[in-house]
C-alpha cells in the first residue's frame, strides 16, 4: 500500500504536480505495476552482474565540440533574452 505521503514525496522527486485524485489513482496503478514486477526473483546483492548491462558495445570517448546551433536551440526555449534562456528567480532578495 502506497500512502498519500509517499505519493507526495514521489511526485516531488518526479517534479510532477498532481491533484489528490491523480495521486490516489496513480498509487493504485503503481501497486498493480509493482505486483507485475513482483515475479522477478530476488537478486543476490554481491553476485550482481548489472555492471555488464551496458556492455553491448564499447563507448566512444567523450569530446567537447562547439555547437553551431546556439541561436537555433534558443529559438525553442520557452523564454529567452539576449542569447540566454530565462528561468524564474530562485534566490529571493533579502
Amino acid at each position: 500500500m502506497i500512502s498519500e505521503q509517499e505519493m507526495i514525496a514521489l511526485a516531488y522527486a518526479c517534479r510532477l504536480s498532481l491533484t489528490p485524485e491523480e495521486r490516489a489513482q496513480y498509487a493504485r496503478d503503481l501497486e498493480a505495476l509493482e505486483a507485475l514486477a513482483g515475479v522477478l526473483p530476488q537478486a543476490e546483492g554481491s553476485a550482481l552482474r548489472k555492471g555488464r548491462a551496458c556492455a553491448l558495445g564499447e563507448l566512444r570517448e567523450d569530446a567537447v565540440v562547439p555547437s553551431p546551433l546556439r541561436e537555433e536551440m534558443l529559438a525553442n526555449a520557452p523564454m529567452q533574452t539576449d542569447g540566454y534562456m530565462v528561468v524564474p528567480r530562485t534566490v529571493e532578495e533579502a
Partner: peptide, 23 residues
C-alpha cells in the same frame, strides 16, 4: 515517470531494479 522513479527509490531499488538487471 512515477513508476520508474518508484522502482529506483531507496525502498525498491535492490528488490526490483537490481533484480531486473540481474534477470
Amino acid at each position: 515517470i512515477l513508476f520508474g522513479t518508484y522502482m529506483l527509490s531507496k525502498r525498491n531499488r535492490a528488490r526490483y531494479y537490481d533484480s531486473a538487471l540481474e534477470m
